[in-house]
């Protein structure tokens, strides 16, 4: 474990806590893409299939459970909780996210570390996570002004994988034979997808103005 990875995991946890706070405090999921939340639930379920078979550390197991439980809880909230469900705008959240699932799985069948069930689902989860934010970014562009908590949620979610890139550079420099090409390349693509969001987020922070993504 290194400071970059710990900071990355904590930023990821923070993004989830901010989203939970937004939904709990406002009893609304306006501006939140249900499809992105569903994709993230699939990402965690597919990535942590080894939750009960491979024990790495208490921290690792604890965080995996937190990520799985929180992502399922958020999807449940948006789909079932009557107050929150009412605020979900399905006419804005129209990205065909099942195409992202199909494409990621197809890619995982060809590009993986080992042709085993666990490794193919792990690669699938890596590819899917890289594109999981797309429905959310599209929704933000459509829904005009973005409330602060939703903006912070997307910012921290994008920042965590950026910190993981620093972690991979650090491990590459300090550990012999450290290579994680699938996670690295996918992580760079994932972080690059936030580039324009980061730009507008920085502008809104500098001008102390409302975050606005151009349509």
């Amino acid at each position: 474990m290194n400071i970059f990875r710990l900071a990355g995991d904590m930023t990821h946890l923070l993004s989830i806590l901010v989203l939970l706070l937004k939904i709990y405090a406002t009893k609304s999921c306006s501006g939140v893409s249900r499809k992105t939340q569903e994709l993230y639930a699939i990402v965690f379920l597919a990535r942590y299939l080894d939750l009960f078979t491979d024990f790495i550390s208490v921290y690792n197991t604890f965080m995996k459970i937190v990520f799985i439980a929180s992502s399922l809880a958020i999807v449940w909230c948006i789909r079932v909780h009557p107050m929150v469900k009412r605020s979900y705008d399905k006419d804005l959240d129209t990205f065909r996210h099942y195409l992202l699932v199909a494409a990621s799985f197809l890619l995982a069948l060809f590009l993986h570390e080992k042709f085993t069930f666990l490794e193919i689902f792990w690669a699938f989860s890596i590819y899917l996570e890289a594109v999981a934010i797309l429905p959310q970014l599209v929704l933000l562009q459509r829904s005009g002004n973005v409330d602060n908590l939703t903006g912070q949620y997307v910012f921290f979610l994008g920042a965590y994988r950026g910190l993981y890139i620093l972690n991979w550079i650090y491990r590459y420099l300090t550990e012999p034979r450290f290579t994680r090409w699938i996670a690295c390349v996918s992580g760079v693509v994932q972080t690059a997808l936030y580039a324009d969001f980061f730009y507008y987020y920085f502008i809104s922070w500098k001008n102390n103005s409302k975050l606005k993504l151009p349509a």
Partner: peptide, 10 residues
Amino acid sequence: GRDARSKDEL
């Protein structure tokens, strides 16, 4: 199980 070291990240 798989080589635990290869998947020690979240």
